[in-house]
């Protein structure tokens, strides 16, 4: 068990890096997912088709394939994902600015993949608002934007918070994949590094890595359960 204490810095560093990519990917996916959701409920058919196509493609494709596209396809196209070297952000999230592009590639893949699920969660929230609400709003003469702003969105926000949380939890778990795509030093890559390269015993390392992920996923899941139960009581 000494490895947990002796190499605590490795575990902490891995946790910190995984946490960073999760925060960045969550923000990116929420923004992109919201855009796609708007496309999917827009009144213009081609936009709707675009949104639907996006969701169909990315929901039915394994994240692994998306990662492969990002990690091996983008370099072939001559891109280093340099547009993600955002001036102020890369001071906080130092990996964004490094010369090795794998962190940025992994981030792109995670955002693209998760956005499809975020879109579905948001849409399920809009669909959960009973049709009578929107009809009533139109009946008293509200415009489309007023309808969304004052009637539909405030209610759908409540309905989609739990599905959104599930999506984020799934994303945290999916982020374990980045260690296998060239991102050095995240939690899953640390597991590989410590056991195969540095020859530490397997079980303690596995326990340490697992704790790193459980710290992020279990409390979030418990929080969601709480919110859900509270909403179930309120709905009665």
């Amino acid at each position: 068990m000494n490895v947990l204490i002796d190499r605590f810095d490795v575990f902490a560093g891995g946790f910190w890096l995984t946490f960073q990519i999760c925060v960045l990917a969550a923000i990116g996916a929420l923004v992109l997912g919201a855009v796609v959701a708007v496309l999917r409920i827009s009144p213009v058919p081609p936009l709707r088709a675009l949104g639907t196509a996006y969701v169909t493609v990315f929901r039915n494709m394994p994240l692994t394939v998306v990662m492969f596209f990002a990690a091996f396809g983008l370099p072939v196209l001559g891109s280093n994902a340099d547009f993600l070297r955002i001036p102020v952000l890369d001071q906080v999230f130092t990996r964004l600015g490094t010369d090795l592009p794998y962190f940025r590639f992994a981030l792109i893949a995670l955002v693209l993949y998760t956005a499809a699920f975020v879109c579905e969660a948001l849409r399920s929230g809009v669909n959960a608002v009973s049709p009578g609400q929107a009809e009533a709003a139109r009946a008293i003469g509200m415009t489309f934007t007023q309808n969304l702003r004052f009637v539909v969105l405030p209610q759908s926000w409540k309905a989609c918070i739990v599905p959104l949380g599930s999506v984020i939890i799934a994303m945290i778990k999916n982020s374990a994949l980045i260690g296998f795509f060239g991102v050095v030093g995240d939690l899953s890559q640390s597991a590989d590094q410590l056991t195969s390269a540095e020859g530490f015993a397997f079980v303690p390392v596995a326990i340490g890595i697992s704790i790193g992920y459980l710290i992020m996923t279990v409390p979030l899941g418990a929080l969601l359960d709480r919110i859900e139960r509270r909403q179930a009581v309120a709905a009665r």
Binding site: K173, S188, A191, S210, Y213, L214, T217, G221
Partner: peptide, 13 residues
């Protein structure tokens, strides 16, 4: 809770 909270990649690994 533990097995649900772990990434599948890691359980396989």
């Amino acid at each position: 809770e533990v097995f649900r909270g772990l990434p599948v990649v890691l359980t396989i690994f």
